[in-house]
Each structure stands twice: as structure tokens, then as C-alpha cells.
Amino acid sequence: MKSLLHSNIIEVHNVFKSFGGVHANIDISMHVKKGGITGIIGPNGCGKSTLFNSIVGAHPIDSGSIIFEEREISKLLVGQIARLGLLRTFQQTRIYSKMNCVDNMLISVSHRKDARDGLFAPRKGETLERALSLLEFVGLYSKRNLISGDLSFGQQKLLEFAMALMNEPKVLLLDEPTAGINPTLINGLIDRLHRANEELGITLCVIEHNMRVVMNLAEHIYCLANGRLLADGKPTELQADQRVIDAYLGGGH
């Protein structure tokens, strides 16, 4: 039992969250396995992003508990949770739009206690090299000196992903990483997500509407519907689950 607990880096227990009369999350429990890739699917408005916001502390939850590395985090603030190494990207991509790509990367370094750079550290050396190689990793090296707000939406999405990697988080929550990205780029992105997971050892938890992506990526998938957890299991199990098909996939799948 003890070893089982250790293998889960995030544990969500019976979380409730409502906004006025809207019950966004009802009694949700889920685990994110350390070192793995977990997927979350569900129709629009089913509470996926609310669950992400609850985990990273963007709003307080009504009841339940959220544990990150055996530590209760449901009462902590966004910045505190981020500094523990639990990071998220946004569905509406958010980057620092008036800064160039390199600066976006440089300021995304870890601000945890063990962070290597101080407040007034110069912007060069090893940190700069890492920033450039990560820009290379997502294919933005040639655009590195452009103002990031001038990039296309897909490129901004890739930049945001690279910024998250720059932070060297333990867990990265990705909110629809492939939305708005063209099909050719999507394959590259899936590959990069896999590599981030395997080579950098970052645990991933992905909200995704593109079934091909999530089936390719995740080892374990949770399906939400109407704020409740509908089903969970391996991708193949979920594809065969009649409840998931009815709620989300539709008959054709």
C-alpha cells in the first residue's frame, strides 16, 4: 500500500467545486502516476479545466483534498504550488507577448528554493544555452529574436510548452496542447511530449479533445462528464466503454 501511494505524484480525493449554482466538479477522485502520462477527456464544459484550476490553486475547492508528493496543496496559492514543481499551461495560450522568445524562456527558469539563478543573475551562460536548446527542441530556434506576440498561434503554443520545460517541473499539466495546431505539427508535438516525459522525466497530465492524440499519448485516461468522473482505464478500455462512447466519443468511433 505504501509503495502504491508513493507511485502517485498527484492524488485528488473527492473534490467538489461549484460556481454559484453550477456544479463544475462533483466528487472527483483521480491519480497521476509518477513518471507517466495521464489523459483527461470529456465533452466541453464537463469540468476538466476546473479540475486543473483546482489542482494548481487558481481557486479554492469546496471540499476534498489534493495531494502532491504526499503533501496537501489544496490550501496553497498558485505561486506556492508552482514553486513546488507543479506547473500548468493554459488553454488560451499565455506567453509574455512583448518580449522576444529567448527572454520568454529565460524568465521561465525555476523559482523553487533550489533554483540555480538569483534575483539579479545576468542573462547568459548555462541558462541561455538551455533556453536555446529548448527553443531548438520545439523548432523555434530561428524565430528566437522575434517578439513572441508576433508569432502564430501554433508557434505561441509551442513556445509556452518550451517555457514550461525550461522551468524543469516535476509535473506538467497541459490544457489542450494541440488545439489550434496544424496536423503536421501535432505529430511533432506528440513526439516532443513523449521525449519530455522520457528524457527529462517530467510527469505529464494532459487534457485533450483530439482522440488520436490522447490515445497515442496517455497510459491511463480519465473521462469526465457533467462534472463527474464517468470512467477511467487504459485507452483501449475506454474506447470500448459504452458510457464513454455515449457521452463523448459518439457512435461513429
Partner: peptide, 22 residues
């Protein structure tokens, strides 16, 4: 320095900066 970038980040998107742990 890094400080200069941090305050630029606050200008461009403070919520994002907060979410990134600044």
C-alpha cells in the same frame, strides 16, 4: 538581469508569471 525580465513578465501577463512561480 533576470529581475528585468521578471518585471517585464509581470507587465505582459501577471497571472501567467504567478502561475510560472515568479
Amino acid at each position: 538581469t533576470q529581475f528585468g525580465l521578471a518585471i517585464n513578465a509581470i507587465r505582459d501577463d501577471e497571472d501567467k508569471a504567478e502561475a510560472m512561480g515568479i
